[in-house]
């Protein structure tokens, strides 16, 4: 088996995550799907790191994790704020526009 298969798997996970972002309304689930996409990207980085035989990919994945952690903190805070003001965690409820 070639390590490229990991990349295929990552592409699959990334796509699933992206579709999830698009079709889920619960902001928390949307956020989880974003995390899934980030993880898929990380898997790609790690796989390529192995394929190319250097550690730059892993370093990058490490940074992605840190940034993702920061993003989760802020994002969840935003969701909490959203929930406080709208009493709902649905991303659709954030729209104030007339249809």
């Amino acid at each position: 088996m070639s390590p490229v298969n990991y990349v295929y798997l990552a592409a699959l996970l990334f796509t699933i995550g992206a579709v999830g972002v698009l079709i889920r309304r619960n902001a928390i689930v949307v956020f989880m799907c974003v995390e899934l996409m980030l993880n898929a990207a990380n898997l790609t980085l790690v796989a390529f790191s192995r394929i190319h035989g250097n550690l730059d990919g892993q370093i990058m994945a490490f940074f992605v994790m840190v940034v993702a952690a920061a993003e989760v903190v802020v994002g969840l805070a935003i969701i909490v704020m959203l929930y406080r003001s709208r009493h709902s965690a649905s991303v659709d409820d954030a729209s104030l526009m007339k249809l």
């Binding site: 698009l22 729209s95 104030l96």
Partner: peptide, 14 residues
């Protein structure tokens, strides 16, 4: 297209 739904915007982006 500008309907205020963040998911619609996400589709465009995607």
């Amino acid at each position: 297209l500008q309907n205020g739904f963040v998911r619609s915007y996400a589709v465009s982006m995607f």
